[in-house]
């Protein structure tokens, strides 16, 4: 079954720049997909449309049964609760502790305290930060902050995790640690879509790779078939 189905999607920004031309894409449940391409090829626009930060001008986007292209602004939260998003700049609340940052995503559902506590500690354990629950994000390293962000994104057990250059601000070793965490999450059944321009990571991971160029999909490598052609 398709978790994501995009059909004839087109996005032109108000300033007249067209970022995506007539794009078709299907992603199955449980897949790990990289989206790569040079700067300005439209990869960020593509995933922003998946979590409805941007709206397509034409076409259909279905994410987990929700017609995202037609979703109203005030209903966007319904989509956001079904998926997790991880950003290059982490987007953590600086004045809340690690625990509070992660718990926040559950508190808005009104879950009981004991349940929140259990779930938050479980994901913090998964990303290896159980002992830093009471720290503030500003006291953590970049890699640790990103792991907090991942914990927050997956704490409500979404079917889909969208990662927008999650390793963009991190060094090589830290990046690989983050990739290990993501791989583990993927093995537990969560579909992951990750935008990156770090081809080293993509080569090592041997996953499905979608190559974008100038707003179009130019190549769709099946799992393990990606070779760096220097594009």
């Amino acid at each position: 079954m398709n978790l994501i189905r995009m059909k004839g999607v087109k996005k032109t920004y108000k300033n007249g720049v067209t970022a995506i031309y007539d794009l078709d894409l299907k992603i199955e449940k449980g897949e790990f997909v990289f989206i790569i391409g040079s700067t300005g090829c439209g990869k960020s626009t593509l995933i922003k449309m998946l979590y409805r930060e941007e709206k397509p001008n034409a076409g259909e986007i279905i994410v987990g049964g929700l017609n995202v292209a037609k979703l109203r602004n005030r209903k966007v939260y319904k989509l956001r609760r079904k998926l997790g998003v991880v950003y290059q700049d982490f987007k953590l609340l600086p004045k809340s502790t690690v625990y509070e940052n992660v718990a926040f995503a559950l508190e808005i559902f009104g879950l009981p305290k004991s349940e929140i506590y259990e779930k938050v500690l479980k994901v913090l354990d998964l990303v290896g930060l159980k002992n830093k629950a009471k720290h503030y994000p500003t006291n953590l390293s970049g890699g640790e902050q990103q792991r907090v962000a991942i914990a927050r994104a997956i704490v409500n057990e979404p079917k889909l995790l969208i990662c927008d250059e999650p390793t963009g601000n991190l060094d090589e070793n830290t990046s690989m640690e983050i990739m290990k965490v993501l791989d583990e999450i993927n093995k537990m059944g969560t579909t992951i879509i990750m935008v990156t321009h770090d081809t080293k990571i993509v080569e090592k991971m041997k996953k499905r790779v979608i190559l974008l160029d100038a707003g179009r999909i130019v190549k769709d490598y099946a799992e393990g078939t990606y070779v760096n052609e220097g594009i």
Binding site: R74, Y77, R80, V85, K91, F104, A105, R152, N156
Partner: peptide, 16 residues
């Protein structure tokens, strides 16, 4: 406003 943006991103409704 960044805080508000983050709240939206993790699925807070306008009322939340």
């Amino acid at each position: 406003r960044k805080e508000i943006e983050i709240m939206r991103l993790v699925g807070a409704s306008n009322l939340n």
